[in-house]
Nucleic acid binder design. Structure first.
Lengths: 142, 142
DNA sequence: GTAAACTCCGTACTCGCCTACGGAGTCAAG
DNA sequence: CTTGACTCCGTAGGCGAGTACGGAGTTTAC
């Protein structure tokens, strides 16, 4: 029985727990996004359980459109003084606001178009097409 | 004087007008994202002015996190019957809704953390760091 | 104590999205 | 009619984010 079984993981178990594959973890280590535990002279590296959350955070952030570089920045917010941390967080927040606005606009446009398409307002050209390309495309149907 | 000067562009002018570089346009053509005008037996290819909007649309969509492949799909909505177009547009809209929700959640989290950091609620660790990593990181400051 | 499963490490490969290069041909201004 | 800027076309290189591989060493289960 290993006395550390619930507080330490091998890379394989970590990968499984975090839902990524081993190679990705090794890649994150290579680029300095996560820390590589020292290798014991005997046996394999051991990862703390919280590394699971750490990696999940990376994946979540990535799905939100952050690059690994940006994620590294987010993580580095941890070093340095609170004021700096806050400044950078605010900047990030502004950027996110912009993204939300853009997506919202696209969403609204799509909704409007879907409505027009459903109503069949325009017999000779599909309103979606029309709007997407502003008089471009071969155009048929609708 | 060229009689078509305001309705046709060379690739260079198109690139300039759309704010991308020539190579990108050629790349988009290669992958079939935009159509390459036929080459006249004499002279250079001519692009219609609306190609500018077309490319700008691509860049806007890209900034919203669409891959070129997805953008191609959006553009292809133009082919096919209105019902199909609408179906795909609705799917896309749902996806965008999800993205907005995620970004909004991140935004709220960041806002909350920025507030906590500003209030200096937690003397021994920066709340942003704490929340980002859930008890990870070297941690100082704040 | 041996076999299967896993880790380690380096290197190489892939895929998406460009960017650069080079030797043509073409155009437009002087 | 020449010169400089631009186009054309193919091919190569680059960066981000992995993925694959292969020959070690190590651990674990039987």
């Amino acid at each position: 029985m290993s006395k550390a079984s619930q507080s330490e993981l091998t890379i394989g178990r970590l990968a499984e727990a975090a839902g990524v594959n081993v190679e990705s973890i090794r890649y994150y280590q290579r680029i300095g996004l996560i820390e590589e535990p020292v290798k014991p002279q005997q046996g394999f590296r051991k990862y703390p359980v919280r590394a699971v959350e750490h990696i999940k955070f990376i994946k979540r952030a990535q799905q939100l459109g952050f690059s690994l570089h940006e994620i590294a920045e987010l993580l580095e917010l941890g070093e340095g003084h609170c004021r700096d941390v806050r400044k950078r967080a605010e900047k990030k927040r502004d950027k996110i606001e912009g993204q939300i606005r853009d997506l919202q606009a696209l969403h609204d446009t799509l909704s409007q178009l879907i409505g027009a398409c459903r109503a069949g307002k325009n017999a000779h050209q599909c309103p979606i097409v029309e709007a997407l390309l502003k008089q471009d495309t071969p155009a048929n149907a609708c």
